[in-house]
Design a binder for these strands. Structure first.
Lengths: 199, 199, 199, 199
DNA sequence: AATGAATGAGCGTTCATTCAT
DNA sequence: GATGAATGAACGCTCATTCAT
């Protein structure tokens, strides 16, 4: 149907799997998971639907594979965080690295943010929940005041907001990201200092 | 929700429209918009799919009607806010009332939070975006530092987080809601004071 | 919904039945029978679908009633024709009157012309077939050459064509109708004269 | 039509598309377009409805494909006619070939004749109208008397009548077709001669 | 003379998935 | 490393029709 200029089906050297992931992620992020059909993905790649099934067993497996490939940094981050002392420095480093990880795989996280209902029903839902719990355990002081616990969690959420929600704030994305990070760091600091003072 | 004392077809005296809205909202919030079929809604109500079409012209109209019925308070809130002076008191009152409005129509807002990709493609998407922009304009000082703008916006977002995301924080919902509100108020105060100091 | 200026539902003095027929015929002729729904008819009249069922037992009965009301002249015409001698004058008078009758109830005949497949399955199909057969028996000389039989029948068909098909011929409708009539009369004359000569 | 020697699922080697067209045309011609459902077509072929959608994107595309495949001869005919001198011989040859083309694809033309209201709303409607206009331009002398213009057009219409309407005239179809052709040729001749005489 | 509320059947269409080749 | 051809299930939606009021 599409037919490229030189007649070749353009670089198809075993990288189809990757190309499927790329296109799928783009469409999932743009339109949502349910509204994106395998037909659509296949058409963009100029292959048949059946070809997708050569590389992935189900539609869900496509998103799962993306999740697994792209959230490795966050898994590592949590593992790293668990072994550190619960100091302010650690917490703030977590926030910094989390911000970086979010930015790195922005489309995936945008997708997860905007399709929570879907994600919850997918296999990745539980995994993701566990991760967030892991982060929470590192960043929150279990003996702290509830208000300060909320403040800490909200710091993480501020990072999400910075990426996905504040698009109609003027300013270039990188500056906004840095501003969000600064706010988040500040919130973590406040929560941490209150906790120490209260003891 | 509906409660049937006996096994009969229960009071069907013109309240079907409302019953459809109730069931639909519950299912939309639980499973998402696309994964909830009209068949499912109809079955729960023990009517046929066609009956739904007597009361609503399309599936989308069901969610639109819910949105219109349930977000009136927020519309009013914005209108009120526009006429107030841009003082700290005003901003904090906005936050307080917004928190209350969110809580009031929790299932709808949970739905919107968790189905953003879907909502964006629905008619309500634009309306909602406009509202958030309205809120932003009241709560943000356009001359403030970008960091403080983010802080203000993030305050609103903290309220969302308090309702929908922090479910696995221990503590009863009402206490968590109050804690979120406190954090949000504090963020608004900080943003406001920075702005004044800088002048 | 529609609501007229003075608040009254405009002249509804028992003429609803007629108004249903009018609107239905217009829509049937415009869009075809199957593509016209009772909902559409009801909406145009600003009544409910159920109201239609007060006046007609089924959708089919609406078209049947129109057929019966509007094709009486053709029935009469056939009855008259049967009692006349099979002269050229009779045949030509039939053609003239048929042309007039077609013009009189143009929308109905346009509908029947353009929805033959539908009409065939409706109750009126057989009736109509019988009528055409009646006309044929009057206008055709059974002993004539097949070519002349066709010529006679085609004369009738020319009248149809004049009304419904030749819309993109320039000239005002009345002139075209007269031209069609002239051609039809001429064809009948030719057929008749051949038959006489051959004897 | 298809003919199954044994009760098995018969030769399904890439001829399904054609088989769909065959069955669809038969049913469309018998019952009309709207009254023929895809379910019905699928059942006759012993495939599922979804299989139809592998071969055609919509129901409309089935009829469009039939139209395009079967009316090619008429398109060619018009093209040929445009390049000929406007002599009587040309006009009569057009009529002869048109008659042959109609006969060749009788079911399709019967369908179009009996479902004009439907066809008008389909994509093929405009194309068909254009063709008829093309034929008209060849066969009609624009300076001729309106009566003779009608006579020429009516000649074409006689051919239609010969195929579809005169079924209850006795005589075998081929003889009737020839008789219609003869009448049509005669009408064209009369129209042509009048035009010459008037000059 | 009409409405409000509903039904049952069916429609065209789309989807993820399968499997022989 | 793919395709061609198909399936089964479901979907949103529309229709003519019914009936108590």
């Amino acid at each position: 149907m599409v037919g490229t200029m030189d007649g070749t089906k353009q670089q198809r050297r075993g990288n189809t799997r990757q190309r499927i992931q790329d296109v799928a992620l783009q469409l999932f992020a743009e339109q949502g998971y349910e509204k994106t059909s395998l037909r659509e993905i296949a058409e963009r790649l100029d292959v048949t639907k059946a070809a997708l099934y050569y590389h992935f067993r189900t539609k869900e497996e496509i998103i799962v594979s993306l999740f697994e490939d792209l959230t490795k940094p966050i898994e590592d981050l949590i593992e790293w965080g668990r072994e550190q002392p619960h100091t302010l420095q650690t917490k703030q480093e977590i926030v910094r690295r989390y911000s970086a990880a979010l930015t790195e795989a922005e489309p995936l996280f945008r997708f997860m943010q905007e399709n929570q209902a879907t994600v919850r029903e997918l296999r990745i839902g539980d995994t993701f929940r566990d991760r967030m719990r892991g982060l929470k355990d590192i960043i929150i002081d279990p003996e702290a005041d509830l208000v300060d616990q909320v403040r800490s969690l909200s710091a993480l959420f501020t990072l999400h907001a910075g990426l996905f929600v504040m698009q109609d704030l003027e300013g270039d994305p990188e500056r906004k990201r840095k501003a969000s990070l600064e706010v988040a760091l500040d919130m973590v600091r406040q929560a941490h200092e209150h906790a120490r003072r209260d003891r």
